[in-house]
Computed example of a mutant assay.
Amino acid sequence: MAAHAQLRRRTGFSARPRSALVRRSYATNLQTEYGYDVSFVQLQLGHEHAATTSIYTLAAPDYRARELERVLSTTLTRSNADLAGTTRKESQ
C-alpha cells in the first residue's frame, strides 16, 4: 500500500485531498495562524481580487473558538489585575 494511502487511513480522510482543499488550508493558515496580511495571501494564491481571497480564508469553527477563548482569558486576566491594583491603591 502506498504511503499516502496509509496516511489517509490513519488520519481518517476517505479520499485524496483535492487541490482546492490544499489551497484553502494554505491560505487560511497563512492568515489566521501566521498572521500574514490578506494582500500577501492574495499574491500567494494569484487572485486578482481580494474578495476571492476572502472566500479561501474563512477560519474553521475550532480555530475561532480557540481564539475567542484566548482573547477572553487574556482580557479577564488583565481586568482582574487592573481591579486588584485599584483595590490596593484605594486601601492605602
Rank of each mutant, 00 (worst) to 15 (best):
M1H: 10
A3I: 12
A3P: 08
H4K: 06
L7R: 11
L7T: 12
R9M: 06
R10D: 09
T11Y: 06
G12P: 03
G12Y: 01
S14N: 11
S14R: 10
A15M: 09
R16W: 06
P17K: 02
S19Y: 07
S19W: 04
S19M: 10
S19A: 14
L21Y: 08
V22K: 10
R23L: 14
R23Q: 14
R23H: 07
S25F: 03
S25V: 01
Y26L: 15
A27F: 02
A27G: 02
T28P: 00
T28D: 02
T28F: 01
N29D: 05
N29G: 06
L30H: 00
L30R: 00
L30T: 00
Q31C: 02
T32S: 13
E33H: 05
E33M: 11
G35E: 00
Y36F: 07
V38M: 03
V38A: 05
F40Y: 12
F40R: 04
V41S: 01
V41H: 00
V41N: 01
V41L: 03
Q44A: 15
L45Q: 01
L45D: 00
L45V: 04
G46P: 08
H47S: 08
E48I: 06
H49K: 03
A50Y: 03
A51W: 02
T52D: 10
T53A: 01
T53E: 01
S54K: 12
S54A: 10
S54D: 07
S54P: 03
I55D: 11
I55Q: 11
I55H: 13
Y56M: 05
T57E: 01
L58E: 13
A60M: 14
A60W: 07
P61N: 14
P61K: 14
P61M: 11
D62V: 04
D62H: 09
Y63F: 14
A65F: 02
A65L: 11
A65N: 07
R66P: 02
E67P: 08
L68T: 14
L68W: 03
L68A: 15
R70I: 03
R70P: 01
V71N: 02
V71R: 05
V71I: 06
V71T: 05
L72T: 10
L72S: 07
L72A: 09
S73H: 08
S73K: 05
T74G: 03
T74M: 08
L76F: 13
T77Y: 00
R78K: 09
R78Q: 11
S79G: 03
N80Y: 07
L83G: 08
L83H: 11
A84N: 09
G85I: 06
G85Y: 04
T86H: 12
T87Y: 04
T87Q: 13
E90K: 15
Q92D: 13
